[in-house]
């Protein structure tokens, strides 16, 4: 009798645990399957929930840091400005009306910071870059290049990174920002226009010019 009672208590506990814990883990309706969408987190931050901002930051920090790294060419500067961008976003989130997506607004802050930083610094700092973690499509491309440029693959990758970084630094900050946001981050002309406070036509014009320049600078790899 006692064993059967214990058995039923255990079964009920397991069922209840699944219901309760499962409800906690169930993502909110209408979201992208991870946690709440950005809009929900922004609302939570406005309501005073700082941990919601931590989630937002972890969600977007790699992209923001990456954009800044490619525009500035220096990872230390990029890390500092990325933190500045998140601090500004944190301080100003009360003014965010939701008329654009949160990440558009965040990237606008980051790009503006980068432009201001580059305007202030006349002397170009040495640039450095992080290691490459290639996705399958990039692996195929590098394998193709390795056939054209036989030798040590690691050296080839380092040389590629340096030459691409040099070529990007040959562009003006405005052209560099456009090509980074478009070709590396994959944003549309309309989104880039919103981030850089310009028009889609201006974005397309700058992108065309930037690509022509880069094709010339990197023609040995094309």
């Amino acid at each position: 009798m006692l064993l059967s009672d214990v058995f039923w208590v255990m079964m009920i506990s397991i069922v209840l645990d699944g219901v309760v814990v499962g409800s906690w883990k169930r993502p909110a309706a209408g979201c992208d399957g991870t946690l709440d969408g950005d809009a929900g987190l922004v609302a939570a931050v406005k309501g005073g929930d700082m941990t919601a901002f931590d989630v937002l930051m972890r969600r977007h920090r790699e992209k923001v840091y990456g954009v800044l790294c490619h525009i500035l060419g220096n990872r230390e500067d990029a890390a500092d400005l990325a933190q500045d961008a998140f601090l500004i976003a944190f301080r100003s989130i009360g003014k965010f009306r939701g008329q654009s997506k949160f990440y558009t607004w965040l990237y606008r802050i980051a790009v503006n910071l980068a432009m201001r930083y580059l305007r202030r610094r006349r002397l170009r700092r040495f640039f450095n870059f992080d290691n490459l973690e290639l996705d399958p499509a990039s692996e195929d491309f590098v394998a193709t290049l390795a056939r054209e440029f036989p030798g040590d693959r690691a050296l080839l990758l380092k040389e590629l990174q340096r030459n691409i970084a040099e070529a990007l630094q040959g562009l003006s900050p405005k052209h560099r920002a456009v090509v980074v946001l478009s070709e590396i981050e994959g944003f549309s002309a309309e989104e880039i226009a919103s981030m850089t406070k310009s028009s889609p036509g201006t974005v397309r014009s700058r992108l065309h010019y930037a690509k022509e320049y880069l094709k010339s600078a990197l023609r040995c790899y094309l």
Binding site: D130, A137, S138, I164, L218, L222
Partner: peptide
């Protein structure tokens, strides 16, 4: 060119 530039996106 797009593939070259996307290599930069693989930096971590």
């Amino acid at each position: 060119l797009g593939r070259l530039l996307r290599l930069k996106g693989c930096e971590r």
